[in-house]
Each structure stands twice: as C-alpha cells, then as structure tokens.
Write a protein that binds this DNA or RNA. Structure first.
Lengths: 215, 215
DNA sequence: CGCTAATCTAGAACAAGTTTCAGACTGGGT
DNA sequence: ACCCAGTCTGAAACTTGTTCTAGATTAGCG
C-alpha cells in the first residue's frame, strides 16, 4: 500500500490544488471533471474496491501519473468525490427545504433525504464514506471541507436562525458523528435502514435541548 | 490490496476460529497470543501502517500463511486486537466503577476514562479504530462483537438497572456512534481532546432524556 | 511405535496503491 | 517563430496485502 508519511513535498514538487482559488486551464478543469466522473461511475458499480487507480486513469483518459498529480491518493480522490456529491446534494436540498416546523424534525428529515440518496447508490456511498473515515492526517484539510459542508447543510435545515450557539454547534457535531457512524454500520450490513432512521431521530432530539424557546 | 469478496470458504478449507468454543491446542493458543501481542506492539509503535503482515508474522515467530490462517486479513487481525484490549479495559473498569450518581455522568466518566487510555497509546488506538471503521461485510461478525462489548461497558456504567428500554438502547447506539466518530476526528487531528470531551458529554445527555424518573 | 490428516513453514507469486523516469507536449513570453 | 518551464504520457519499478504450493511437523489414534 506504499507509505504515506505526511511529509511536506519537496520545494520543487507541484500539485494541482482543488479550489477554484488556483487558475486551472480549461483543459485541466476538464481533466479534473473527467477524473471525478470516472471515479463516481466506478464507485457506483462496485464500491471502494472497484475504484482502482489504473482504471480511473484509463476511464478518464489520463495517465496514471497525472491522476496522482491531481489527487495524491485514492483516499484524496474519493474524499474529493464526496465533496462533489455533497455540493450537488446541498443544491438540491436548498430548492426544496424541509417542511416541518420543528427544527429537530427538519434536520432529521433532511438527513433522511440524504440517506435515501445514498440508498439509491449504495456502492458509491460505500466508497465515499469508507474513504472519509479511513482518511489519515494527510487528508485532514479535505475531510474538514466535507465536514464544513455537512454542517452547512444541517444549519440550513435548522432554519433561519442567527449565529448558532456553541451548544448548538456541539449538538451538530454529535449529529454528524452519528450520521457518519450510522452510515458505516448500515453499509457494512450491521444495521437496517430502519435502525439508521431511529438513530438519526434519536440524536436529533439534542437539537431540541438547545432550543428550548417555543413559538 | 487483493480482493476480499466474502465468499464462503470451500468445504475443505479450515480456519482457526477465535472463540473459546473451539478447542485450541496449547501451542495454538500460545501462537494466537503471540500474534496479538506482536500486533499490539507494532501498532503502538506506528499505528495502522506500521502493522505489516510480514512483520507481525516474524515478530510472532510464525509463518505468513499461518498468520493468515488465524486472522484472514489485516482488518480481522486489528479488530481482534481491539476485542482483546476492550476486554482488558472492561475488567479494569469493573474494578473501579464511576462514582457519580447521575447515570449520564457515569457513562461520560467511563468513556473519558477509556479515552484517556487511548491517549496513552494513540498509535494503537489509531490502528484499531481505523480498522474498525474500515471493516467491510466480511468482518461484520467480529465488529459486532466489539460493538456488543462496548454496549456492555456502557450499560455497566449506567448502573444496576433492569433490562434497558428500547429507547435506552437507541441512546446507547447513538453514544457509540459518537464515540467512534469522535475518536476518528481526534486521531486524524481534526478535533482536540477538549472537543472530544464536549462531544461525549453532549451525547450523554441523551441518557437523561430516557430516564426522567428522579431519585 | 507407525499411520494419516491436519497444521505449519518457507518462499514464490500475484494484485493494486504509489513512485519514478525519460521523453513528448503545451502555453506564454520574447 | 523560438524557447523555457511546467505538464502530461507510457511504462517500469517498488511496496505491502493476499494467495498459493511443496515439503516438514504435529496431533491424535490404532
């Protein structure tokens, strides 16, 4: 599996960062898109194991070395894919926000919607979630981005509140923990869909604890 | 990384199961012990990546093939190590149960004690927890054992209650989710020790919700 | 003791992630 | 049009998990 000892790249080594901060050539942006699409397709077919770097490279019409220049490891690649999918989901959710009046219920509703999306592509979900929890320090930044995206989605679901209190942020972190871990147990066949729903609903009660003020 | 397509072993292939159900020779039990110890030592030194199957085999004085007969994959090996360590921890905790009167606080206290144990061996914790969350269906049974052990520890901490209600079991599942996921974020450097404590304390409030009867 | 099946060992072989390298290609600046 | 630095390609090499094989060893049994 090669090493991966988070050492800073030597001064001459370059990388192709992800953010729109760096000016990518049109061809480069296209390459990146093709890579992510190939990854999602392979993942949808067979999950984590089916995403093989050589196959991704070939499917994207790119040399193996190039793939590694864009994404320094398989885990980076899959976490980037998750960013991509999450962004898409966020957009979808914005269009049809949850209907319930209770913030806790809205969050649960939103997460269940996301969960249903994953049920439609369980292999893809497997690849992304496994990568996410397997990621080591060298992927911190990228995983953090995913976490921030998830937080944003939950905050959106909670409704048009002002700045969240520290207590609410704790609750949200715990909800995210539960979300990821419940997904894992579902993906590895140790929990049913119903059980995941119960866990999500259970943890969402924490939100109620932090917003005791009633309408 | 080879395949791992959970196929039933051919009728002639044997495996050396773990449970005390199977009568292991003394030599075999010793081999198994040596393997687990070598694993823990290597893991303590350098975490998941430092546990290399060839090295484990050599350190345990066993052939590579034998190692694979006892533990069919690296993940199996590390999950078994976690079972081992958890059992040890459970014993230790039984001796000095938490002191607080509030069940929720007792659970939090217990988990923080476990967390402190992990802080003493962060690399070992890394190896075990990463294996646990990376495990796929072929390791379900073993991971489930770990989960049951964890549940037992939490139930112990909650105190001498009768059979837990379904609601309490949900809360416990959510606590376990949070526990695993919070560990992951700590191990990958995305959360501080303080933050893990807050998350644990936050999620433990769920217990209070399920035991409203006061003393 | 001597037999047989199961187990263990040493080592080669294979698979997939990762690294490396020499040469072709591209984009911008002159 | 020409040149340079940076990029991309194709292919080989290396690492580590996993599998396979042929031959020793061991455990139990008559």
């Amino acid at each position: 599996m090669g090493h991966m000892t988070t050492e800073p790249k030597s001064p001459t080594a370059r990388a192709v960062p992800a953010g729109p901060s760096l000016p990518l050539t049109e061809r480069q942006a296209a390459r990146r898109r093709r890579i992510l699409q190939a990854t999602a397709e392979l993942a949808s077919r067979g999950g984590f194991d089916a995403v093989q770097m050589r196959e991704v490279a070939e499917a994207a019409g790119v040399a193996l070395g190039t793939l590694y220049r864009y994404f320094p490891s398989k885990v980076h690649l899959l976490v980037a894919t998750m960013q991509d999918q999450l962004q898409r989901l966020h957009g979808t959710l914005r269009k049809r926000p949850p209907t319930d009046t209770d913030p806790a219920a809205r969050v649960a509703q939103t997460l269940m919607r996301a969960f249903r999306a994953m049920q439609r592509e369980p292999h893809l979900a497997d690849a992304m979630v496994r990568a996410l929890t397997f990621a080591d320090r060298s992927v911190s930044a990228e995983v953090d981005t995913v976490s921030r995206l998830t937080t944003a989605i939950i905050l959106d679901a909670m409704g048009p509140a002002g700045p969240p209190t520290p207590e609410q942020l704790s609750a949200i972190r715990v909800i995210e923990h539960t979300w990821h871990s419940a997904l894992i147990t579902w993906l590895s066949g140790r929990a049913s869909i119903a059980q995941v729903r119960i866990d999500i609903e259970t943890v969402c009660r924490l939100i109620r604890l932090t917003t005791p003020q009633q309408a």
